[in-house]
Amino acid sequence: MAKLTVEIITGESIVYSKENVDLVEAPGADGSLGILPGHAKLVSLLASGEMKIRSEGNEEYFAVFGGFIEVMDNKVIILADSAERAGEIDLERVSQARDSAEAALRDRDEVVDIAEAETALRQAAIRERIGQRRRGSGS
């Protein structure tokens, strides 16, 4: 059976590149996208959220924040604004970031950019969830 080739690329580097992938689950702008081999050609915006890649029985998780995904002829190219592998998420720093974002929102300090703080809070929540999932699955 045909397999997928997957690349996750950000402006700074290639985060991930793999062949023989069975399934990609990505946070599309209009809801979650599940991509199997033989998927139709697709270009979609990405929301921020969790991405799952299954290959050879292993599952890997990533946090992605915005960007694009293109599927063409069993090639999946993810051009993310930012992407992190679950194992590389530093939970301690994430909870710090979450605390400071929450504090900023609570105090409604005039200097704080509310939208920015909300984004930071949302990103921290996503990172936390994905970082913890990796521990839960014990890999």
Partner: peptide, 21 residues
């Protein structure tokens, strides 16, 4: 090749994000 692409949410949104990027 592009004729049978699926766009999500739609062509306009995608291009409007893609071009400035």
């Amino acid at each position: 090749k592009a004729q049978d692409y699926i766009f999500e949410p739609n062509e306009k949104e995608v291009l409007n994000q893609l071009l400035p990027r």
